[in-house]
Computed example of a mutant assay.
Amino acid sequence: MPTEIGPDHHLSYDDIVKLTKAKQIYLIDVREPQELKEAGELPESVNLPLKDVSKALGELSDSEFQKKYNATKPGLDAPLVFSCRAGGRSLKALQTALELGYTKAKHYKGGFMDWEQHTKSKNS
């Protein structure tokens, strides 16, 4: 039975900024690598495409994860936050992570489009 996703699983731009500054986040971007090259990426995020989430988080050893994604594999109690372009894929990744036992997993509901909107408005 799927884990219930409630309002506390959805983070905003301000939440992401605050958690990143406090180093209380393990940010995973579930877009494809080509999307990141074309559109840009969230600062300090690990690219883990949606199609890889279940296997990477559920089956890979720490060393295999490190080798494939050039990042430390998060523990089950890590403050995971998934992001994508607009929030759809990150919600799927969140559901997968919760089912795998990642108890503190959340997602950035606005995704990269929201990030870009906020950062462009601050820089103009």
Rank of each mutant, 00 (worst) to 15 (best):
E99C: 07
K73L: 12
K92Q: 05
T96A: 15
A97L: 02
L100D: 04
K109M: 02
Y102Q: 13
Y108T: 14
G111K: 13
D77I: 06
G111I: 13
G88T: 04
K104C: 01
K106N: 10
A78Y: 13
A86W: 13
S83R: 12
A78V: 08
L76P: 14
A105S: 13
S90F: 07
R85N: 12
G87P: 11
L100K: 10
L76I: 06
L98S: 01
A86N: 11
A97D: 03
Y102V: 00
L98M: 02
R85A: 12
G88E: 09
K106P: 03
P79T: 07
A86F: 11
Q95K: 15
L100G: 05
G75C: 12
G75H: 06
K92T: 02
P74H: 10
G110C: 08
L80E: 02
Q95S: 15
A97T: 13
Q95L: 07
Q95I: 14
L94G: 05
G87L: 14
V81E: 00
L80Q: 01
G87F: 12
L76M: 15
K104R: 14
L76S: 15
F112H: 07
G110D: 05
G75T: 01
A78K: 03
A78T: 04
S90I: 14
K106W: 10
F112I: 02
A105R: 09
S90W: 07
F82K: 04
F82C: 09
V81I: 15
A78S: 14
K104N: 08
K109E: 06
R85L: 09
H107W: 11
A97C: 01
V81F: 10
A86E: 06
Y102D: 14
L94Y: 12
S83W: 06
F82N: 10
L100T: 04
K92C: 00
P74L: 12
T96E: 15
G75L: 08
E99P: 11
K106Y: 10
L76F: 09
G111T: 07
K109F: 01
Y102R: 13
V81P: 03
L94D: 03
L98Y: 01
K92H: 05
G75W: 02
V81S: 07
